[in-house]
Simulated assay, not measured.
Amino acid sequence: MFGLGIVGLAIYAYTIYDVITSKFGGPNDRIVWILVVLFLPLLGTILWFVFGKKSTL
């Protein structure tokens, strides 16, 4: 069980790093995504990889 926690924490940290280093069209997009990921950790991570990554391409 402890290993799953570390994997989850690593994915969460990578998501925050990925949001911070991504290029966005507008200046507020990054702030919104960071807040979504911080306040909704599991759902925010899923939303980022499903919808957020596509919006930065």
Score class of each variant (00 low, 15 high):
residue 1 M to K: 15
residue 1 M to T: 15
residue 2 F to L: 09
residue 3 G to I: 15
residue 3 G to H: 06
residue 3 G to K: 14
residue 4 L to V: 10
residue 6 I to R: 02
residue 9 L to Q: 04
residue 10 A to Y: 10
residue 11 I to S: 03
residue 12 Y to H: 11
residue 12 Y to L: 05
residue 12 Y to K: 01
residue 12 Y to G: 14
residue 12 Y to M: 06
residue 12 Y to P: 07
residue 13 A to S: 15
residue 14 Y to F: 12
residue 14 Y to D: 07
residue 14 Y to R: 15
residue 16 I to Q: 08
residue 16 I to K: 11
residue 16 I to G: 05
residue 17 Y to W: 14
residue 17 Y to V: 07
residue 18 D to A: 09
residue 19 V to A: 09
residue 19 V to T: 01
residue 19 V to E: 05
residue 20 I to D: 02
residue 21 T to E: 09
residue 22 S to V: 08
residue 24 F to A: 00
residue 24 F to I: 01
residue 26 G to M: 13
residue 26 G to S: 11
residue 28 N to M: 14
residue 28 N to P: 00
residue 29 D to A: 14
residue 31 I to M: 15
residue 31 I to L: 08
residue 33 W to H: 11
residue 33 W to D: 06
residue 33 W to F: 12
residue 34 I to K: 01
residue 34 I to E: 03
residue 34 I to A: 10
residue 34 I to Y: 01
residue 34 I to F: 03
residue 36 V to R: 04
residue 37 V to M: 03
residue 37 V to P: 06
residue 37 V to E: 05
residue 37 V to A: 12
residue 38 L to K: 08
residue 38 L to D: 04
residue 39 F to Q: 02
residue 39 F to G: 09
residue 41 P to D: 13
residue 41 P to K: 08
residue 41 P to G: 14
residue 41 P to W: 02
residue 43 L to C: 13
residue 44 G to W: 04
residue 46 I to F: 12
residue 46 I to N: 09
residue 46 I to Q: 07
residue 47 L to N: 14
residue 49 F to L: 05
residue 49 F to P: 09
residue 50 V to I: 12
residue 50 V to W: 13
residue 51 F to V: 08
residue 51 F to S: 04
residue 51 F to G: 10
residue 52 G to P: 03
residue 52 G to R: 04
residue 54 K to H: 11
residue 54 K to L: 05
residue 54 K to E: 13
residue 55 S to N: 05
residue 55 S to Y: 11
residue 56 T to K: 10
residue 56 T to E: 01
residue 56 T to I: 07
residue 56 T to D: 00
residue 57 L to M: 03
residue 57 L to Y: 11
